[in-house]
């Protein structure tokens, strides 16, 4: 019987993934189209240094996008990723600068605090049955306030931990391949994307993310403690926000308390453009990475062409709505 020798390719052929694959293909086509278009329009667009610019500009949004993707596939939403990111970078600052602890405490501390805050919002969503939109909207605002309170509205500078400011912009790969010049932030993004894809496709948590997004009630009636898994999903998302926080604050050399709001919308936009369904159950990490690249290539390309800033926003808005339209069409067909 052929059923006993199922391979990964069968997996990819099955219905749920066909639609996602198709949409990923659409998103990828858009990406290629943009690259071709900008390359034709500007001789300087297609250069290695500009590619690095784009990758760097993409990294933080892509990482936040990964956090959003996990939550959105599970039919949730996380509006607090931006300010949680800032919160984590501030925790890193408080631990390693204000308290003078070494980085090997400061960095894990920041990630764990992200996970803890994520677990809190997850627990409120799961046990108190408050819609995730409301809970994370609340966390978004509350964290913004906390960020200002903790820092007294002053940035925390990482001057006393000079290594910290190298984590993100430094290019460790250049030691191996001189002149490659890809900053670590980009590698962190790629690595995280791979790990997140493995979590989604190969681990029990990932399986529950798809299952909950597809039919939460059926999962509950299968005797699964749905609430615990929800907490887990938001905790993981929170920890990934922590990674974004490290990347951004390392690049800026400081934890800036007032930033963060607005990042969640870019991250959600990347996720949606990448084919993740806001209704849950469908989506991929690769799609989100592509989505994040579409946004930053659009921004970079239009800047290189000296197109006025405001058109940048018009273009991303247009692409976002188109992406959701394509998503819906594919869903009803599939």
């Amino acid at each position: 019987m052929n059923t006993t020798t199922v391979s990964q390719t069968d997996f990819a052929k099955s219905g749920m993934f066909t639609v996602a694959t198709l949409q990923k293909a659409v998103a990828f086509a858009v990406l290629l189209l943009l690259v071709v278009f900008f390359s034709l329009m500007s001789p300087v667009f297609l250069s290695w240094s500009n590619a690095i610019n784009i990758m760097t500009a993409t990294s933080v949004n892509a990482v936040l996008g990964i956090a959003c993707t996990l939550v959105i596939i599970s039919a949730g939403i996380d509006l607090s990723v931006g300010t949680l990111m800032t919160f984590c970078s501030i925790i890193a600052g408080v631990l390693s600068i204000n308290l003078g602890l070494p980085l090997w405490i400061g960095i894990p501390g920041a990630l764990l605090s992200g996970a803890a805050v994520g677990a809190c919002s997850g627990a409120i969503i799961a046990y108190l049955k408050i819609p995730p939109f409301i809970v994370t909207l609340g966390f978004m605002r509350a964290l913004y306030g906390l960020n200002i309170v903790v820092t007294s509205a002053k940035p925390i500078y990482f001057d006393d931990q000079p290594k910290y400011s190298l984590i993100s912009p430094d290019s460790s790969i250049s030691a191996l391949i001189p002149g490659l010049g890809i900053p670590n932030a980009v590698f962190v993004m790629v690595l995280l994307a791979i790990v997140a894809a493995i979590v989604l496709n190969r681990t029990i948590l990932g399986r529950f993310i798809y299952a909950l997004g597809s039919n939460e009630e059926a999962v509950r009636l299968s005797g699964v403690n749905v609430n615990i898994w929800k907490v887990g999903i938001y905790a993981l998302s929170g920890m990934i926000c922590g990674i974004a926080g490290l990347l951004l604050s390392s690049r800026l050399g400081s934890a800036q308390p007032a930033i963060g709001m607005g990042y969640e919308l870019d991250a959600i936009a990347a996720t949606v453009i990448g084919g993740t369904s806001l209704a849950g159950g469908r989506g991929t990490i690769l799609g989100t990475i592509i989505g994040a690249f579409i946004i930053s290539i659009l921004s970079n390309g239009l800047t290189v062409l000296s197109v006025a800033d405001e058109w940048k926003y018009v273009a991303t808005g247009f692409i976002l709505v188109t992406a959701v339209y394509v998503d819906m069409r594919l869903k009803y067909r599939g």
Partner: peptide, 25 residues
């Protein structure tokens, strides 16, 4: 004067300026 861009936050301004530098070597 070859370009004018608008950004108020560190990271966004940095990405903007890098694109300007690319466009105008």
């Amino acid at each position: 004067l070859v370009d004018t861009k608008f950004a108020n936050a560190d990271a966004k301004a940095a990405d903007d300026i890098k694109a300007i530098l690319t466009a105008h070597p």
